[in-house]
Simulated scan of single mutants.
Amino acid sequence: MNAREVFEKRLRQAVRASAREVQEYAQENHRFTSKTGELERAIDVRQVSDFTAEVYIDSNAANYGPFVHNGTKAHIIRPKVKKALRWVPQGGNAFIFARRVRHPGTRSDPFLYKALEAKQEAIKGIFSKAVNVALDDIANSVISDTKSINIKIKL
Rank of each mutant, 00 (worst) to 15 (best):
E21S: 10
T72R: 07
A17H: 00
G125Y: 03
T36N: 05
I57M: 12
Q120N: 15
I143C: 01
F97T: 12
Q90N: 15
R78C: 03
H103C: 10
D109Y: 06
Q47W: 01
S141M: 14
F95P: 07
N60S: 10
A94Y: 09
E117F: 04
I138V: 09
Q13M: 13
F32P: 08
K129R: 10
A19D: 04
D50I: 00
D137C: 10
N140F: 02
H75L: 12
V101F: 08
K147C: 02
Y56W: 02
F51W: 01
G71S: 13
R102C: 01
E5C: 00
Q47E: 10
A19F: 00
I153F: 04
P104E: 11
M1V: 07
D44E: 07
P110I: 12
V142D: 09
A42Y: 01
F127C: 14
N140W: 03
R16E: 15
A62W: 00
S18D: 10
K80S: 11
I96G: 07
F127S: 13
D137W: 05
V45Q: 03
E5M: 10
V22C: 08
L116K: 15
I143T: 04
N60M: 04
H69V: 08
F67A: 15
K9Q: 14
P104N: 11
N63W: 03
A42P: 05
N29L: 02
I76M: 14
S148F: 03
R78F: 04
E24T: 12
I143P: 00
R99K: 11
P79H: 06
R12M: 12
